[in-house]
Structure formats: structure tokens, C-alpha cells
């Protein structure tokens, strides 16, 4: 026995080191590309953006002559008269789009497509997925044409003129309506797919039990379906809040922030990277973005907590390497 222990001790030294290396390097090889990309394009940018937000860097100062200015950019944001408006715009845009489309319409379409014959449901779901896979420029042009002034606009030509409404270009006339519609028709598909697969995975027994109990369709939705899909509902709500808050591609293409449709993320983008005057205020824009980044991180962490991260993660059932 003592001899055994001695022998074990012998093979422990170098073996353990080798073993350790293999255990450390094996997974590292798998993880390396992803890790490097995350470091370069997530971690570094977060640090950079916070750093830049503390400087006066702009196309006027260039990359050489800038200076640290502490929290002055944040002070400027709070004093800027536009901040209040843009903040209100952002909240308005997120809340209305989310409730009407990303959750509301998504749920309606999901419920409808799961209660009609399968092929019909599938067709409509595909149609609703179309906007998401359409190039954004084409998609926005389509809406521009729907809203365009007479004689070109579809809305004017086929609906409003016959009703006797005076034609106009409806994007400037009703900018928020169209910002919300364009984003909403894309946003709805995400929730729709998740909700409909959640509804379809409700055990049939519940549905049949509800039928046996004599539930009407409405009662079935209210007392069976909605309670059973409350997790997907919550997930879509939080996830989509975050993505609406920070995405601006379609607003950029539709109004470019004109007609008072500037939202926070677009404001940051305009100030820092893309504006008519070529005066890029990287410091100020970075401060605007930093605020969103902080909101994003906080929400993402809360969201992770809420959705019980630990339960999603199974432990590997192989320990060898």
C-alpha cells in the first residue's frame, strides 16, 4: 500500500502539470476566437466609449489635440434643451411600439394563426416574417411609397382620396405614426414566432379540458393560454424593450430624425458618426451612448437574473478531456 502511494506520488508531479495544461488549453482552443472577438468588439468598445465620453474629442480637436474634461459632456446633456424632448420621444416611441406591435400585435397574430387551419396560419406567419428579412432600405422605401403624396402614394390613391381626405405626404404629416408602423411591423414577427410556438406547445389536454368545461374562445385565451405563456410574454417584453431602446436603423432611414422623431440612440449616432455638417462630436456622442450602454447592461443583468440563468445551464456530464 505504501509502495502504491509512493508510485502515485511519483506520477503526480509532471503528469499533473501536463494534465493541467491540457485541461486549460483544450477549452481555450475552442473558446479563443469567440473570446478575442468579444474582447475587441464588446469589452474594449465599452471601455473606449466610457473613456471618450470623458473627453472633448471631436473632428475639431482631431485624434491628437483632445483633452480630458471629466463629466462635462454629461453636464451638457442635462443642460441641453433637446435632451428632454428626445428623452420623451424615446420613451413614447418605445412604449407605444412595444405595446401596440412588438407584444400586442405579436400576440394577436400568434393567437389568430394558431386558431386557423395549419396551412393558413403558416402562410400568414411567413408573410409577417417577410419585413424582417427584407433589406431595410427597400422596406422603408415601400413605406415611403405607401405614405407618399398624391398622385403616387398608395394610401392617398386607394383609401383616403375615395373617402374625400385631402392628400398629402403622410410621413411628415404623421411622422410618429409611420415610425411606429415601420418598426412595429418588423418587431411583431419576433414575438409572433415565440408566442405561436409557445401556444402550440401547450399540452392538448389543457385545451381539451377547457373545451369540456365549455369555455368560449375568449375564456380559453384568458384563462388557459395567457397564463401558460406568461414566461414567453415576459421574455419578449424585456428583450424587445431593450432592442427598441437602442436600435435606430429604420428611423434613420425613414425620417433621419426629422419632424421631431429623433430618439436617444439616433441622437448619439448623429452627433458622433453621421451628420450633415461633418462635425463629429465623438466625446458628446460617446456620453449619450454611454448612458444607453449603462441602461443596457443593467437591463441585461436584471433580465438574466429574472430568467434564472442557472436553470438553463446544465453541467457537462463528461469530465475527460
Amino acid at each position: 500500500m505504501s509502495e502504491d502511494i509512493a508510485r502515485m506520488g511519483q506520477c503526480k508531479g509532471p503528469n499533473r502539470l501536463l494534465d493541467h495544461l491540457r485541461r486549460a488549453w483544450g477549452p481555450f482552443l475552442f473558446m479563443a476566437p469567440a473570446t478575442i472577438l468579444v474582447l475587441i468588439f464588446f469589452l474594449a468598445p465599452v471601455i473606449i466609449i466610457i473613456g471618450i465620453s470623458l473627453t472633448n474629442m471631436s473632428s475639431a480637436t482631431g485624434f491628437k489635440n483632445w483633452a480630458w474634461i471629466g463629466l462635462q459632456n454629461y453636464g451638457k446633456i442635462f443642460r441641453n434643451p433637446k435632451s428632454g424632448t428626445i428623452f420623451r420621444n424615446t420613451v413614447f416611441y418605445v412604449l407605444v411600439t412595444l405595446s401596440l406591435f412588438n407584444v400586442g400585435m405579436a400576440l394577436v397574430v400568434a393567437l389568430l394563426t394558431t386558431h386557423v387551419p395549419r396551412r393558413g396560419g403558416f402562410l400568414f406567419r411567413s408573410l409577417w416574417l417577410l419585413p424582417r428579412i427584407t433589406p431595410s432600405v427597400v422596406y422603408i422605401m415601400m413605406w415611403n411609397y405607401i405614405a407618399a403624396d398624391a398622385p403616387y402614394g398608395i394610401l392617398n390613391r386607394h383609401l383616403l382620396t375615395p373617402l374625400g381626405v385631402k392628400p398629402t405626404n403622410w410621413v411628415p404629416a404623421q411622422p410618429w405614426a409611420f415610425v411606429i408602423l415601420t418598426n412595429g411591423f418588423i418587431g411583431a414577427s419576433f414575438g409572433m414566432i415565440i408566442f405561436s410556438s409557445a401556444i402550440e406547445s401547450i399540452p392538448r389536454d389543457y385545451m381539451i379540458a377547457a373545451l369540456v368545461d365549455g369555455c368560449s374562445l375568449w375564456q380559453r385565451i384568458r384563462y388557459v393560454i395567457l397564463p401558460m405563456i406568461r414566461w414567453p410574454l415576459l421574455f419578449v417584453t424585456t428583450y424587445q424593450t431593450l432592442s427598441l431602446l437602442t436600435s435606430f436603423e429604420y428611423i434613420l432611414l425613414l425620417t433621419d430624425g426629422q419632424f421631431n422623431t429623433e430618439v436617444w440612440s439616433l441622437w448619439a449616432y448623429h452627433r458622433a458618426l453621421n451628420n450633415y455638417w461633418g462635425n463629429f462630436q465623438w466625446g458628446f456622442g460617446a456620453a449619450l451612448a454611454t448612458i444607453l450602454v449603462i441602461v443596457g447592461i443593467v437591463m441585461a443583468v436584471v433580465y438574466m437574473r429574472y430568467f434564472q440563468f442557472t436553470e438553463l445551464v446544465q453541467e457537462p456530464r463528461i469530465e475527460a478531456l
Binding site: G26, M31, I52, A289, V293
Partner: peptide, 29 residues
Amino acid sequence: RISFPGRRPFLATTLVLHAFPSVTLLIAI
């Protein structure tokens, strides 16, 4: 599939980034 030190933090990071608004980083990128 592999159990290695740091696996859980990695997973947590992935999940947070999954919800992270990456467009806000364009300026820094």
C-alpha cells in the same frame, strides 16, 4: 459540453451580451 474553469462566467457573459444593445457601441468600434 466541456467543464473548464470559468465556464459559468463565460456563459453568463454570453447571455448578457445576447441581450446587449450592440449598436450603442458603434462609436467605439
